[in-house]
Design a binder for these strands. Structure first.
Ligand code: FES
Ligand code: FES
Lengths: 143, 143
DNA sequence: GAAAAAACATGATATTAATCATATTTAAGA
DNA sequence: TCTTAAATATGATTAATATCATGTTTTTTC
């Protein structure tokens, strides 16, 4: 469903949402340690996210990554789309080019409704929504 | 979600369900051509499925793979479990060891219900159920 | 009981995804 | 304006999947 990279990216973004803002930027090194993902690996992912404005960044001393107001209100799926691409999550279960309603594969009627639901939730829930759950101890960031 | 291998396996099993029985076995070569999957690749998958009794097989001249009555009534998920393993489909979205209800990851509440639903359907629908849909032109096997 | 036709077992190669490394650019602060 | 601290860009390596190849065993048929 999600690539490893997307999982890491999501962890990093949520961590940043809880622990950074315009005034408090975080360095790759610290993020990496806290979320337990190799530094060079998460660096690459964070750079991709920054380039696509999912998160914010500043170069130079006192620089780092952070999440600003606008970043916070983006849907979860934005992260996944940048890292995995839209296709991965929406593609046909049996490997058809597109999941085509006019010529559905044998699994389509079985799983399509559930998947559509999932995607809708990923589209409607924001980064901030998930961060709130974490703050309220309704959920937990895995090591 | 599903590996390529699982997708191929499922295609092959459904094709066999429609075109084989105890009296009419099919050789790898023919299956491979019909479902458009490389011969050596699908052969390996079919052998795994046969060893785990998901499908049937017979060696020697006039041998081949086929689906018998018992095979037909197995749940779809049996195929996926043999090829991908149970873990792949049930694992936590954020990469936790198990999807743990006592310490759910941030995505859990969002996607777990949909995923559970999907799994239940894969458990309850049989190979035969999907084959029926194909016969009635309610669904189609991808090339 | 020998020859051939099939699955079976095992291993090799190729492709993709995950991980690591390093040189370049930018901006802060002395 | 020089030094340094950070992200950025790019590419190299490693590991996991997907794909291909080939020798071995079983069973039919003559
Ligand atoms: S056509 Fe395959 S999942 Fe929709
Ligand atoms: S704990 Fe992550 S999906 Fe359930």
């Amino acid at each position: 469903m999600l690539s490893n990279s997307s999982k890491y990216a999501l962890k990093a973004v949520l961590y940043l949402t809880l622990h950074s803002d315009e005034k408090n930027k975080m360095m790759v090194k610290d993020i990496s340690e806290k979320i337990n993902v190799p530094k060079a690996y998460i660096a690459k992912l964070l750079q991709q996210l920054a380039k696509r404005k999912i998160i914010s960044s500043a170069k130079g001393p006192k620089g780092g990554f952070y999440i600003d107001k606008a970043n916070r209100n983006q849907p979860i799926i934005a992260i996944i789309e940048v890292i995995d691409g839209k296709r991965r999550i929406e593609s046909c279960m049996l490997g058809l080019e597109d999941c085509n309603l006019h010529r559905p594969c044998p699994l389509h009627s079985l799983i399509s409704p559930s998947r559509t639901k999932m995607i809708q939730l990923l589209e409607s829930k924001t980064i901030n929504d998930l961060a709130k759950d974490l703050e309220l101890n309704k959920s937990f960031l895995p090591d």
